[in-house]
Amino acid sequence: MPEVKSIFREVLPKQGQLSMEDVPTMVLCKPKLLPLKSVTLEKLEKMQMEAQKAVKLQELAMKEQNQ
């Protein structure tokens, strides 16, 4: 839009050096791709979960028997 006159005019030096201050800024941690799990690991985790569940059920049954 060339007809709109801006209040600010940009200043671009035609000669001489252009200098810029490098200010240290804080850094963010990077995005994290999640690694896929191998079949073995998935099976291990599944077995562990099932074993834990079974043990919990058994303990519950034991408790009920005691009562």
């Binding site: 990077k30 994290k32 791709l33 690694p35 896929l36 191998s38 073995t40 690991l41």
Partner: peptide, 18 residues
């Protein structure tokens, strides 16, 4: 600076095994 590290100081991989 680009690739995150695991706790042992290696870049994270695309796949985990036990």
């Amino acid at each position: 600076a680009i690739r995150p590290l695991t706790q042992s100081g290696r870049p994270i991989t695309g796949f985990v095994r036990p």
